[in-house]
């Protein structure tokens, strides 16, 4: 009897979400997978021919796709580390009892509100003009030069701009985690005479593992899907060296008009990333349970 009512609640609580989610995300995605096995032209699916795996074969032979894949991995790993360290530190800072903490929080969070072409405008100015001027003034033109025109530094400019945005984003999640720690526990540790380092590692970090699970996954998935900053800052340049995966997929579809191949790329991308990240979520979730 109790079991039945539980099952009923379970579904009653889930059905509204699932209904919308399935119709908005799952079905279009499945359609996308179906399209990837055809010669779909980006318009009406009616009339497309089944081509089995030939799109996928093309994907694996596409040198640009493979190098974009590798670059995206490098980018994602760096981003996960950098933005979580900065984001968590910021959250630690602004959850202390400071008078101006709310203003500080708002400021750190502000970069998230600047997107698209404006973001490119501002940062291109910094990297292409301000840096050149700084280089002349400081006689340090080996550090400060036009980063956007250098393949290596253009990549790092994307990292910097994304970290500038993403750190404030995960800070918000860490704040929620830190704010929900029972203050009594901290109080008790103070009475025990725990130093700040021990307090961080023995009390705060274990209690914020859920926030870490979430933030790691969100930074990972957002980095893998990175498009806006890539587009507005370097647009893949110089000479295609900073083209990340999503940009590669978008260009395959909308520049080269190879919609079905682009769908196959998205599917390959999804499967690989899903395998990696679900392992990550599974591992950290397991840690949460053990805690």
């Amino acid at each position: 009897m109790k079991k039945n009512s539980n099952t009923l609640t379970f579904w009653l609580f889930l059905i509204p979400s699932l209904f919308i989610f399935i119709n908005v995300v799952i079905i279009p995605f499945i359609l996308g997978i179906i399209y990837s096995f055809t010669d779909w032209d980006g318009f009406s699916f009616f009339g497309s021919k089944f081509v089995a795996f030939s799109n996928y074969l093309k994907v694996f032979r596409d040198q640009n796709f493979l190098s974009a894949f590798l670059l995206t991995f490098k980018y994602a790993i760096i981003m996960v580390i950098v933005s979580n360290i900065i984001g968590f530190s910021l959250a630690l800072l602004v959850t202390r009892k400071m008078r101006t903490r709310n203003i500080l929080r708002s400021i750190f969070f502000m970069p998230n509100l600047i997107g698209g072409l404006i973001l490119g405008f501002i940062w291109q100015f910094i990297f292409t003009k301000l840096f050149v001027q700084l280089g002349t003034v400081l006689h340090a033109s080996n550090i400060f030069f036009n980063w956007i025109n250098d393949p290596n530094m253009a990549f790092w400019s994307i990292v910097i701009v994304s970290a500038w945005q993403m750190s404030g984003y995960v800070m918000i999640i860490y704040i929620a985690g830190l704010e929900s720690i029972n203050p009594d526990i901290i109080e008790a540790s103070l009475i025990d005479g725990a130093g700040p380092v021990r307090r961080l590692f023995n009390i705060i970090l274990p209690l914020t593992v859920p926030s870490f699970t979430i933030s790691l996954f969100i930074t990972l998935s957002n980095s893998f899907k990175q498009y806006d900053t890539n587009l507005s800052l370097t647009n893949g340049g110089p000479y295609g060296t900073t083209e990340l995966l999503t940009m590669n997929i978008v260009q395959t579809a909308y520049k080269h008009n190879q919609y079905a191949i682009a769908q196959s790329k998205a599917v390959v991308f999804f499967v690989v990333i899903m395998a990696i990240t679900l392992v990550q979520v599974y591992l950290t979730k397991k840690r949460e349970v053990e805690m």
């Binding site: 340049g237 110089p238 000479y239 295609g240 520049k255």
Partner: peptide, 19 residues
């Protein structure tokens, strides 16, 4: 051909960069 704007500009960027 479609997509030549991106691919071709990559080539010409290389050209200007002396590569």
């Amino acid at each position: 051909p479609n997509g030549i704007d991106v691919d071709g500009s990559n080539v010409i960027q290389k050209y200007y960069a002396g590569l």
